[in-house]
Amino acid sequence: MTIAVGDKLPNATFKEKTADGPVEVTTELLFKGKRVVLFAVPGAFTPTCSLNHLPGYLENRDAILARGVDDIAVVAVNDLHVMGAWATHSGGMGKIHFLSDWNAAFTKAIGMEIDLSAGTLGIRSKRYSMLVEDGVVKALNIEESPGQATASGAAAMLELL
């Protein structure tokens, strides 16, 4: 079942590569007592993710934070090292969290997995964005096609805030 507005996020542990090395980031650590924008991409370094979705959040980071958001995170079903390389390459390291859901446990737990094997990607995450307050989903925007980043993009999130 797909997560919905009003639902509490399940407990999960992500991996994140930081300037100080790899760390574990739990949903409790990331969301407890905070207002967080979380967006998901089918894959780091993929065209729509790298050319549209992620840049929008990096360019609008300060505007999003100015509207009462404590943190911004991107999650993908990629390994820790790929996510770390993407953070460095995009200039996003230290600006937003680049969370590795390496085994798709979180993605499956919230019903957002998609089989992109036809495109040689395997099981990945649907493209979405959500506003989470203290672990509860307050807004959820799911893209109809993994190749689009409109409903889940930074501009749409700014309108919600």
Rank of each mutant, 00 (worst) to 15 (best):
A63M: 11
T46N: 12
G6P: 12
T13C: 08
E24Y: 06
R61L: 15
P10D: 07
K8S: 14
G6W: 08
G21S: 08
F14N: 05
G43N: 07
T46I: 12
T26D: 07
K32P: 02
L38Y: 05
V36C: 02
L58H: 00
R35I: 00
A44W: 09
N52Q: 09
R61A: 03
T18V: 11
V41P: 07
A63K: 15
F31R: 02
N60P: 04
F14T: 04
R35A: 01
A19M: 11
D20L: 09
L58W: 00
D7A: 04
L51P: 01
F14P: 07
E59I: 00
G33N: 01
L65N: 04
L9E: 07
V23T: 14
A4T: 12
V36M: 01
A63L: 13
T13L: 06
K32W: 02
A40D: 05
A40N: 05
I3C: 11
V25N: 01
I64A: 10
K34W: 00
S50N: 15
I3A: 14
E28S: 02
V37C: 01
V5C: 12
S50D: 13
E28L: 00
C49R: 04
G43I: 07
E59K: 09
R61C: 02
L30Q: 00
F14A: 06
H53G: 07
P22Y: 12
P22I: 15
P42C: 12
T46Y: 10
V41R: 06
V36R: 01
I3E: 10
G56E: 07
T26E: 08
A12N: 12
G21M: 06
F39D: 08
G43K: 05
T46L: 11
G56C: 09
A63S: 15
F45Q: 11
V36S: 02
E59A: 13
L30C: 03
V41S: 14
L51C: 11
E24S: 14
L54P: 00
A12H: 14
C49T: 07
A44G: 14
Y57I: 05
G6E: 11
K34Q: 04
G43R: 05
I64L: 15
A44F: 10
Y57R: 05
L29K: 14
A40R: 03
V23D: 09
D7R: 04
P22G: 08
E16Y: 04
N52H: 05
E24C: 03
D20T: 14
A40C: 09
